[in-house]
Design a protein around this nucleic acid. Structure first.
Length: 572
RNA sequence: CGGGGUGUGGCGCAGUUUGGUAGCGCGCCUGCUUUGGGAGCAGGAGGUCCCCGGUUCAAAUCCGGGCACCCCGACCA
């Protein structure tokens, strides 16, 4: 491809609304063009990257027995009503009315459709196992798209679904996907960490997330370097400190004016925050949830939601406290009524904590679980934190921000049961199919690679997904000998099936070199009056600063030899 | 959905406080010169100043109401 023909206008300055550096380069280089918040057009350069990422995914999915399908983006509402997600998922599920008042949804995921497909096609255990995948558009009306390609509303996902006759089969499919995922991410140039995850709206029995550690990540993960424990903060546990062993003392009200926060309270009384109890209030639908953790810890909303069996939790509004006996800022479970009380197990085990008196300006010393109050649920609802002791080995854990680039779920019968997706086993018994679901965000992966692989000048694509393998810079092209040499090399490289972008524009050297750096193509080859005088071309790797001269007749041979590299797609 | 910010030519911005009919840099077009790290000179094209309404002799600027986009939080396979 000649640069003069390529539809890619590079920008010297990044649009002001792009903050992440990798995303800025994707915009400046002409890889993608935003249409609206979280909705993008892929331009030719971006399309080439996307195509290569998808090719890797296809290869790895095919390698574990996956078969490709494409399912619709528009689904009838009835299917989503059958699984209940029509009702349980909020406005992020985009709904619209088609002709004749038919309710439709835009696919945010495809479990319903795949389950329906299996329901229609599978009758016998002899047809199982099945592994299907697609690379297809999804739409999620996210409350807030951000981070460029990392969190889009319309995006492309590689989603795979396994159908097995039993748990052992699911374990095997899950393991195959797990390993394929590592191969996909490594080939695309990132090294993810796998963390245990919450099953969220997917339901099912287990889930792992593939996380790319990045400061712009929206997720937080806890990692133990000593034993390898890794978990999303949403579900991460930690070894709780030993509660104090002192005797229970008698309850005592103490005036604590203007001490409505734990920090103020601890400072006022001259005690550590760990000797206090913190109360927070949530609504799970119509249920009022009163949650208590030790003062130095935070409530983990995911754990709390799971503890009370709620799909959704939101902070309670002040007016919702009316009639419960709760006084915000001075709250404790003592004297409250009509609410579901959930107490963290550490609080329940800790003697003589300072807690609110449910009276403006007063707290209680020496509150004790069991003696002074009880709870509907006592369990772990505290959030793990940086430095928290590992639940397995007790060593302090690291907390990192990360982007979820892939996830795998053991769905079990979450979708096949309500939809009646069954098969007959060897004994002629009807059983629900056991499913797994496995997703990778294609655009998000590209966005993550861009964030990981760049320098101050631009992108540095891994060879495996670079839009071109070679950026051929022609300088002094008004010199006929140089033009002929550059054109010849271009033709030779194309004949070798090397993907080459030939900068034949009438631009100055600086412009071309800077564009080459911005676009991040792995190899730059320069032909100029200077190099032609030595019958050579200058070769430079984007990832390195060194250049070297290679005789013109050897350049295409050199690249052909290079084609052996295992991770490479294409002919270089 | 709460808090904050921003909407002015393709991109980056000034102008808004104190109303007077739109400007700078980059990019783009033409010509000449230049030519290994974002050239110089000369000439030129390009803008419903986010939208609607109001105030005013006069609105990018003041007032009201929308919308869009960005950041933080909430939310999130």
């Amino acid at each position: 491809m000649r640069r003069s023909q390529l539809f890619a206008e590079t920008l010297r300055q990044a649009p002001a609304d792009a903050d992440a550096p990798g995303y800025q380069f994707l915009l400046r280089g002409g890889f993608v063009q935003p249409l609206a918040a979280g909705i993008f057009t892929y331009l030719p350069l971006g399309m080439r990257v996307k195509e290569k990422v998808e090719r890797i995914m296809r290869e790895e999915m095919n390698a574990i027995g996956g078969q490709e399908v494409v399912m619709p983006v528009v689904h009838p509402a009835e299917l989503w009503q059958e699984t209940g997600r029509w009702y349980s998922i909020g406005p992020e599920l985009a709904r619209f009315t088609a002709r004749g008042d038919r309710q439709m949804v835009l696919a945010m995921t495809h479990e319903e459709v795949i389950a329906d497909l299996l329901r229609r096609q599978v009758q016998s255990y002899r047809q199982l196992p099945i592994m299907l995948y697609q690379i297809q558009t999804k739409f999620r009306d996210e409350p807030r798209a951000r981070g460029g390609m990392i969190r889009a509303r319309e995006f492309t996902m590689k989603d795979a679904y396994s159908a097995d006759a039993g748990e052992e089969g699911l374990d095997r499919s899950y393991r195959d996907q797990y390993e394929a995922y590592f191969r996909i991410f490594r080939r695309a140039g990132i090294e993810p960490v796998v963390v245990g995850a919450d099953v969220g709206i997917m339901g099912g029995s287990g889930a792992d997330e593939f996380m790319a550690i990045l400061p712009i990540g929206e997720d937080q993960i806890l990692l133990c370097e000593a034993c390898g424990y890794a978990a999303n903060r949403q579900i991460a546990t930690f070894r709780k400190p030993q509660p104090g062993a002192e005797q229970q003392a008698s309850l005592e009200e103490v005036a604590t004016p203007d001490a409505a926060t734990i920090a103020e309270l601890a400072a006022f009384l001259g005690i550590p925050e760990s000797e206090t109890a913190k109360a927070t209030f949530f609504m799970a639908g119509d249920r009022f949830i009163f949650a208590v953790v030790r003062g130095d810890m935070e409530v983990n909303e995911t754990k709390l939601a799971n503890a009370v069996g709620a799909a959704d939790l939101r902070p309670a509004r002040p007016e919702e406290l009316a009639g419960t006996g709760i006084v915000a800022g001075y709250a404790s479970p003592i004297g409250v009524h009509g609410v579901t009380v959930v107490v963290d197990d550490l609080v329940a085990a800790s003697p003589n904590l300072v807690a609110g008196a449910n009276r403006e300006g007063y707290h209680l010393r020496n509150t004790n679980y069991g003696r002074d109050y009880t709870a509907d649920i006592v369990t772990d609802i505290a959030s793990a934190y940086a430095g928290a002791p590992c639940p397995r080995c007790g060593e302090p854990m690291r907390m990192e921000r990360a982007v979820e680039v892939g996830n795998i779920f053991k769905l079990g019968t979450r979708f096949t049961e309500p939809l009646g997706v069954t098969f007959l086993d060897e004994e002629g018994r009807e059983k629900p199919i056991i499913m797994g679901s496995y997703g990778i965000g294609v655009d998000r992966l590209i966005g993550v690679v861009a964030e990981v692989h760049h320098d101050e000048k631009g992108l540095i694509w891994p060879e495996s997904i670079a839009p071109f393998q070679v950026y051929l810079v022609g300088l002094d092209l008004d010199d006929e000998a140089v033009l002929a040499a550059a054109d010849t090399l271009y033709t030779q490289l194309q004949a070798r099936r090397v993907e080459v972008l030939y900068d034949d524009r009438h631009e100055r050297a600086g412009v071309k070199f800077n564009d080459a750096d911005l676009l991040g193509i792995p190899l730059r080859i320069t032909v100029s009056r200077r190099t032609v005088a030595q019958a050579a071309a200058e070769v430079k790797r984007r990832s390195e600063t060194a250049t070297r001269l290679v005789p013109l007749e050897e350049v295409d041979e050199m690249l052909a030899a290079h084609a052996e590299a295992p991770v490479t797609v294409g002919n270089i």
